[in-house]
Design a protein around this nucleic acid. Sequence first.
DNA 1: ATTAGCACTCAAACAAGAAGAGTGCTAACA
DNA 2: TGTTAGCACTCTTCTTGTTTGAGTGCTAAT
Lengths: 345, 345
Amino acid sequence: MDRIDRKYRILQAIIDDYILTALPVGSRTISRKYEQKLSSATIRNEMSDLEELGYLDSPHTSAGRVPSNKAYRLYVDQMLKPPPLSVEETAFINQCFDRRVHQVDDMSMRIAKALASMTHYTSAVMTRTPRSEQVLSHLQLVPVAERRVLLILVTRGGAVRQSLLDLDASIAADELYMVSRILSSQLEGLRLSELPDALTRLSGSCATGLRQIVQAMAEQQPEAAGSDAVTLSIGGRSNLLGFPEYSDVDKAKALLSVLETREKVVSLLERNGEMEISVRIGPETGLEETRDCSVVTASYRLSDGRVNTIGLIGPTRMQYGKALAVLSQVGRSLGAILDEYDEHE
Amino acid sequence: MDRIDRKYRILQAIIDDYILTALPVGSRTISRKYEQKLSSATIRNEMSDLEELGYLDSPHTSAGRVPSNKAYRLYVDQMLKPPPLSVEETAFINQCFDRRVHQVDDMSMRIAKALASMTHYTSAVMTRTPRSEQVLSHLQLVPVAERRVLLILVTRGGAVRQSLLDLDASIAADELYMVSRILSSQLEGLRLSELPDALTRLSGSCATGLRQIVQAMAEQQPEAAGSDAVTLSIGGRSNLLGFPEYSDVDKAKALLSVLETREKVVSLLERNGEMEISVRIGPETGLEETRDCSVVTASYRLSDGRVNTIGLIGPTRMQYGKALAVLSQVGRSLGAILDEYDEHE
DNA sequence: ATTAGCACTCAAACAAGAAGAGTGCTAACA
DNA sequence: TGTTAGCACTCTTCTTGTTTGAGTGCTAAT
């Protein structure tokens, strides 16, 4: 027991050191810096065992050892003591949410920037708004051009969706406002997913002007017809280039390309289970390009049905402790702020 | 005359070759690939002259020569023959604008992606909406939470701005809609820059419910109070890493960091004169970090006052011809599409 | 005015050796 | 039996010296 305990203490020391330095760590280093009671020879034996167990890899015979993905897994699952954030860090986070937020739009960008600057990793903030759970609060049609109308949908949570409608014939501005009022009262309270049905039902029984709009909405409205709306903000892309693992430009380029492909980023952030916090290591990230990255995410379901995910992307040699601490703290604050909007529901 | 002509023909050959290969070009190369009538010795003499004139630099004694910024300047101002886009390229651009655009939001991102993929440079699309020229078309207040209201402003061009207002006391939804109607009719047709004045004028003479809203708007509305609204989309960040000038990760990182600082990107895109198309080379870009980059931009003023700028960022050794061709073609199509929205004005 | 020829320069590529970090194994030791 | 000192061995990295090749500048010949 004592024996086993020591083995994992050594493993942890190796992981800690490697996370810090990115250099393969040798027996001597451990014996000097972490386990001064033990000689390097003893450590060597233990390390040999650990390699056999699959927790360590050696780049070549005389280069020290490097933690395997299996080791990182064990590390985050078992060994990670939740490290408390420093006073400054907590203060920084609070300050981010402190001032009243009036600009809804750039909120997630601000969070992403904050996450990136605190951790030096690349960050992402994703908000998925499920169509089926969003309830319409208000609808407004605004004339934009001859035969072109701006349709604005506001949901209970305060999300605004806009899309343009092309009409067959032009409609006077006055008539348009009237139609807005009618539709708004008819459709308010419905879920967005129920809109298409409601629209076809309506289109049967109404005047020509109204009917034209309703049909255009039914046909052309991608928001309601398509899948969930997903917004994405990414911060700290250049942070990745600071790590020695990306001093090879080709690797860096491959990774940055991933960040430019919306679907790939979404797939990285998408949680596969229901758990709030998830750590995916190396191949677990699911993408070939990120086979030596780790992704840490925290997801929160808001009371209006939206799902908010914040995440960090970095090398597998990531400071998991800090990443988790920052993510959960920011996630908590963020969840609180966002839910505030819905407090009357 | 003939003499001078030849000198600049040689300079052009050097620039062309360097743009293509990124390698210092020697006299031999020119004599073989571009000026087969002349011996390398002759070219050498001319190159020596050109260096004296400040058009060429030599990295070291025996390394061939590299065009100076002054040379690029001459190149784009005098030597650049407008190279026609290939059929495929024109087709690609048209296809981008072909399908009806219903999603206003991601339009600029789509353009940015297209620009980047056509040129392999980094692209940016900026839309500046001057507050003073935007005319209010519709205003809507929507309840979001107890004492919290979503204010939506729609302008004639079809731009939608939203901001949150905090109220001192809660207001019933019905009352809110009534206030919306009143305000909308009172303020419609005003320029956004006139809103603050109009609001203070209004707040003197109205009922308490209305007054509270008006005051909140006057105090809290950053959109109307602040400067012009600027949206920014950037594409093809990872493209930069493909160029040999950024195989040094530190340089690449510095450049990518610039792209993460909103104000810096804006300053890069900001045109200093009134000209539609601008090419800035090296230090002309105005930022220390981009002293060996060039920025090519095209700006278009739309009929509703918005100014749209699309730009490309790459090494000074940029394919200026292609960049200009693509930018002006895309700019033309984009201007046409965007102005369509305003055709009834 | 052009060009052939030649001496000279300098970076990049290559090879060989030395240094250093680290391992595995064996034998001695508590 | 677990621990450790010692040693041979293995690789990488660093250094140094050498070669190669591309390119220039100058001079003299055409």
